[in-house]
């Protein structure tokens, strides 16, 4: 097959670019430690969330030194709990599921972002270093009131953080 020299050079350069992109993703996962939302959250019966051990009482729970678990239920058109309060300098694992349709869970201005699918539990772990206030929005169309679906995440200074309850 007759391929022009310039085209060969371009082909090789393209392949380098592609391998380079894959390398950046590998670095992001292995070096920078960015894990993907995956199947580790397990499944849940969305029709009986109120009887579920974890999702029966959505809220914040301290599970270790500087480590917290936040259980969130997304439903038309709100998040529970709201607001979510966690202390600064903490490692927070979110467990998010939906009581009805597919929603999104995005902490605006950060890369905390996941789909919320009924029957599935999205599990994401995030470090919050500094006190701040963030908006939480649903970024997947979920019905006629979709645009009203928002929540708040407050990262309070460590010494002001009262207790487990939000």
């Amino acid at each position: 097959m007759n391929v022009h020299t310039y085209e060969k050079i371009w082909l090789v350069a393209s392949l380098f670019l592609i391998v380079g992109f894959i390398a950046t993703v590998v670095y992001g996962a292995a070096g920078a430690g960015i894990a993907m939302v995956d199947a580790s959250g397990g499944t849940v019966d969305s029709t009986s969330l109120s009887e579920n051990e974890r999702f029966g009482e959505p809220g914040v729970e301290r599970v270790g030194d500087g480590e917290y678990e936040v259980t969130v239920v997304a439903r038309q058109f709100m998040y529970q709990p709201d607001p979510i309060r966690v202390p600064a300098d903490s490692r927070v694992t979110f467990y998010v599921t939906s009581a009805d349709v597919i929603h999104g869970f995005q902490v605006v201005g950060t890369n905390v972002n996941t789909m919320v699918i009924p029957g599935q539990v999205a599990k994401i772990t995030v470090d919050f270093d500094e006190p701040a206030e963030y908006g939480i929005i649903c970024n997947e169309y979920c019905g006629q009131g979709h645009h009203d679906m928002e929540g708040k995440l407050v990262v309070v200074p460590e010494d002001e953080y009262g207790g487990d309850d939000a």
């Binding site: 894959i22 993703v25 996962a29 894990a35 993907m36 939302v37 995956d38 199947a39 959250g41 499944t43 972002n113 996941t114 789909m115 919320v116 699918i117 029957g119 599935q120 539990v121 999205a122 599990k123």
Partner: peptide
């Protein structure tokens, strides 16, 4: 579906 729960990271990597 990179941000979908319920799909293992390895499958996402293959798609990537």
């Amino acid at each position: 579906q990179y941000l979908d729960p319920g799909i293992a990271e390895g499958f996402k990597f293959i798609a990537m």
